[in-house]
Simulated scan of single mutants.
Amino acid sequence: MPLKIATWNINSVRLRMPLVQRFLEEHQPDVLCLQETKCPDDQFPSAAFRKLGYRHIQLNGQKGYHGVATVSRLPLELVEKRSFCNMEDCRHISTSVNVAGRNVVIHNFYVPAGGDEPDPEINPKFRHKLDFLREMHLVVPSQAADSSTILVGDLNIAPLETDVWSHKALLNIVSHTPVEIEGLKSVQARGGWVDLMRQHIPPSEKLFTWWSYRARDWDASDKGRRLDHIWSSPDLAPALERVEVLRDARGWDRPSDHVPVIAQFG
């Protein structure tokens, strides 16, 4: 099943459109899922994407915050824009593409970051994150015989000890706390999702997709976290050929603090 899909928290698509263009020209994924687009749908730079060959666009955006977008060189159908926690945040969109006669459903997520204090009793943002994870249990792979499912996005949780620069230092830091990890693993187990990044890159290896803007030299200090993920239904896992984390993109001009992740199926 030939398919190349990428996910990237772009941290403002209009501001970083030159970086998106560079990425698309150099890596040419079939489908690109963006998070934190930070613009309403009518201000999304659709014309620029179409000029690059990504004519099929599905959006769930809002002014200044959050927002997800899925763009594709393949015909792309909208499946659903799901709301979570009775809020109007634009944090999810699901689409579908047909690949070699198979329907592939793609869920594109931006999970709440959760604020700074990992206590739901005093931090509403952290409570929101935990509630969001509970509702994610409703998102499971398609059961249709001719369908497969992929889930991608900035899930804002680094679940493994090797997904953070220091397990000990970050154990009580939002994104790596036990309650968040338990919540994410529960979502994964409920849907039978396969963590494709860790299928391709052994869990014993350090793996990061995000480096803070606060670091004076992000590359030298290398205090990263794996916050971005690509999962699939079990039937797709054997077709995975490779996963690439484009670390160099963190050093591009005016970069996002996240880098693209690419999964190639064949």
Rank of each mutant, 00 (worst) to 15 (best):
P260D: 06
E77I: 13
W165V: 05
I10C: 08
D228I: 06
G114D: 04
L133A: 12
L227I: 03
D235W: 08
N123T: 00
V20K: 03
A263T: 10
N103E: 12
E161T: 14
L74D: 09
P112L: 00
V179N: 13
W8N: 04
S212T: 12
Y65L: 06
T177V: 10
C85W: 07
I181D: 10
D257Q: 01
E180G: 01
H66K: 15
H92V: 04
K185I: 08
F44S: 03
F49K: 04
N108K: 07
I201Y: 12
I57A: 06
W193E: 01
L151F: 14
P45G: 01
Q188C: 07
W252L: 04
L155Y: 03
V31T: 07
H66C: 10
S147E: 15
K168N: 14
K223Q: 15
V140G: 05
K38W: 00
L15Y: 11
G266P: 09
H92R: 03
P40I: 11
A263S: 09
N11H: 06
G61R: 02
A47I: 04
L52I: 10
A47T: 08
D116L: 13
E161I: 11
P124D: 03
G266M: 08
A69F: 12
P238Y: 14
R50P: 00
A100L: 12
I57C: 06
P203H: 07
S175K: 09
L171A: 15
I150T: 00
C85P: 11
N86K: 14
H176L: 05
V79T: 02
D222T: 05
P18N: 03
F109E: 02
Q43V: 10
W165P: 01
W211I: 03
T37S: 12
I230C: 03
V259N: 03
F265T: 09
E161V: 13
H27P: 10
T177N: 10
S94M: 01
R247E: 13
W231T: 01
